[in-house]
Design a protein around this nucleic acid. Structure first.
Lengths: 192, 192
DNA sequence: ATTTTATCACAACAATTGTTATGTTTTCAG
DNA sequence: CTGAAAACATAACAATTGTTGTGATAAAAT
């Protein structure tokens, strides 16, 4: 097993403790225990806790983005955008863990400017992706020409964010069908 | 100053420290310092930290709900619903503090089931209010008759939640006009 | 085979935490 | 005025935290 793989394993252990115990109770010792090792392993692969938590957040985010890109592959038009958004939704119970990590970090960022900046980077990244998709749809004359694409991208992100936040607290709040219905309805309002 | 007023003062100090430092760094000592007193005051008015934090959350929530009810007063129809939703949005910079507290608690709830239940209670409460408004609008034949009101109420809450979460990270993400535009567009899709 | 390096275990450190107990001061009814 | 109760201050407690340093063991390179 390579160095990077082992790093990811440690981050994954951290990730599991975060979901189970909460971010502020995710201590180095708890991560080591989850990993079945000593704290020496954790400190060996990460300079400090900040580096580890940021890496764990990065992993979760990359998983979501890769899922979105995989869903986009080979698709076109409105269906392509819809499927990309669907990939980010907590449609199944297994997706909820990602959203728990996301929500935990969001709350943990309050009062920590460097974490707010980290989140902002990811929001910007997502907005860029969605904006590009919307621009393509606009060029193909599939959505209205007078739309503020940045606003529409932010609106889509906010919609997904809201659904995700709700489901973290109330897992039965939206069924998978309902989530997709709401996204579809939102996107349909943009069509020509 | 009455006992209850002093309790609220302590909670408000906690509330300010949460926004500035983050929930997990909001110690009894930090609250006392913010209050300009000793920790003796804090422990005198609250049994333990859990009671204090839950009370602080309750205060923020009540402020928002009261704002919504005040906006509803004297209004009718679609305008009434719109204004209620607007009251919950972070339209001005001062509203963002409420959303920071909300986000901090949401993240802090991950892995703490008793806090998740507290949040769920509030989601249920909000859903009940919105549902009632939607039912009134439906009875007045102002919105479509075949709507799933619970779903639509949840969708509105998710929309507001998403906007609030986004703005905690990116304060310039949505202007006040844009927030209101998105809510209006969402509600317009429900009209008859 | 030997040395060097990566990996990991363990212990100790100071700092911070919530909580509790014990005082001190203020308030205020009798 | 007096004493009881409320309000507040202070200090100490054990527990937990991130971090660091010191070894031990395994892997790899020479």
């Amino acid at each position: 097993m390579s160095y990077d793989d082992r790093r990811i394993e440690v981050a994954k252990a951290a990730w599991q403790v975060i979901v189970r115990e909460g971010l502020d109770r995710t201590s180095m010792r708890a991560i080591a225990q989850e990993l079945g090792s000593s704290t020496g392993v954790v400190t060996h692969y990460f300079r400090d806790k900040e580096e580890l938590t940021l890496f764990a957040l990065e992993q979760v985010f990359e998983n979501v983005v890769e899922g979105m890109k995989a869903c986009a592959e080979g698709r076109q038009g409105i269906d392509r955008l819809e499927q990309m958004i669907f990939a980010a939704l907590p449609l199944e119970a297994t997706d909820r863990a990602d959203w728990k990590v996301w929500a935990a970090f969001l709350g943990y960022s309050i009062g920590r400017e460097y974490l707010v900046q980290e989140h902002r980077k990811r929001y910007d990244f997502l907005r860029q992706i969605i904006c590009q998709e919307l621009a393509d749809l606009q060029a193909a004359n599939l959505i209205q020409v007078d739309l503020d694409l940045t606003l529409e991208a932010n609106a889509l992100i906010a919609l997904v964010d809201g659904i995700g936040s709700s489901i973290v607290i109330c897992p039965e709040q939206f069924s998978a069908d309902q989530q997709q219905y709401l996204v579809r309805r939102h996107i349909n309002a943009l069509l020509t």
